[in-house]
């Protein structure tokens, strides 16, 4: 250092740093601080030897303990699986309807179903299972393929219109307009008739409309238009519509119907997870 300045009062050399007349004394570091500092360095060196530490081109140095976070995660997962093994086995062995009755099993299955739902189902049905246009709301009490626990379980297992599953729910509404099965005035008439059943705006209940409905629609939707879950024919008298509830959208659906598909989850997730999903969906509030 160029100039050695010694502070008069303390007799300690200054560092030469000065702020508004306040000079920094060149006191030694406190001993406890210094030893803590050395200790930290020693611990750091120890850690870098024991654990993965230094980044190299082919990945970090492995460390002599062979520790890796991935191994730890898979161990943790295995431990969690092991801890839940009893319940998982019980879910697997219990018919899905009986899971509902067993309070503990129900709680476990609902929790498991909720997390599986968030991974596999929310893409179409929404995070709250609230659905959207073309994707059914699973909270309500309208079920296209039936709302009992067994029916929900079957729907999740085999999906809807999944070409890979022979037992999938399958139906197709004819292209009444596009394939010229019905004339345009007939479509208008039956559409206003259907709209009248649930009190939609523009709905008119006419004998002509009722006749066209009986001839063309009742086979799937039922004579009273209250739907046939075994065929997947939706209830047309209630307030819930898959593709918007309006006269225009009924006309559009009659002309060239839209059909959603749902994958068969049984083979993808396994029976146990599907059971849990069924219990969860059934418990959302609309289950029959």
């Amino acid at each position: 250092m160029a100039n050695h300045e010694v502070d008069d009062i303390t007799g300690v050399e200054t560092t030469g740093h000065e702020w508004d007349g306040i000079k920094e004394l060149n006191n030694p570091l406190p001993r406890w601080w210094l030893w803590t500092f050395y200790g930290c360095i020693a611990v750091g060196l120890g850690i870098s030897v024991l654990y993965p530490a230094w980044p190299l081109f082919g990945g970090p140095t492995p460390g002599v303990l062979g520790y890796s976070t991935r191994t730890e995660l898979s161990n943790d997962l295995a431990a969690a699986q092991l801890a839940q093994a009893g319940l998982i086995a019980k879910v697997a062995a219990t018919p899905v309807a009986d899971i509902l009755i067993d309070a503990d099993l129900n709680r476990y299955a609902t929790a498991g179903g909720a997390s599986a739902f968030k991974v596999h189902c929310i893409q179409c049905h929404g995070t709250g299972a609230e659905g959207g246009v073309g994707y059914p709301n699973l909270n309500d009490d309208e079920w296209i393929w039936g709302g009992t626990i067994d029916e929900v379980y079957a729907t999740i297992t085999h999906g809807a219109r999944d070409p890979g599953d022979p037992d999938t729910h399958y139906n197709i509404m004819p292209n009444f307009g596009a394939d010229a099965i019905l004339e345009a005035p007939q479509i208008a008439t039956v559409a206003t008739y259907v709209a009248s059943l649930s009190g939609l705006e523009g709905g008119v209940n006419t004998p002509e409309g009722a006749q066209i409905f009986a001839d063309n629609c009742a086979a799937c939707h039922g004579d009273d238009a209250k739907g046939k879950p075994e065929l997947g024919g939706p209830d047309l008298t209630d307030q819930i519509w898959l593709y918007n509830g309006s006269l225009d959208s009924i006309v559009a659906q009659l002309g060239k119907p839209r059909h959603g598909t749902m994958p068969a989850w049984g083979v993808r997730l396994g029976d146990t997870t599907v059971k849990e999903l069924a219990v969860y969906v059934h418990g959302l509030g609309g289950g029959r």
Partner: peptide, 18 residues
Amino acid sequence: HDRNPQYVLLSDGSIRNG
């Protein structure tokens, strides 16, 4: 109160909150 959905429309037109 349920965060999502805030309410559910039921088939008879009534509204349900969870």
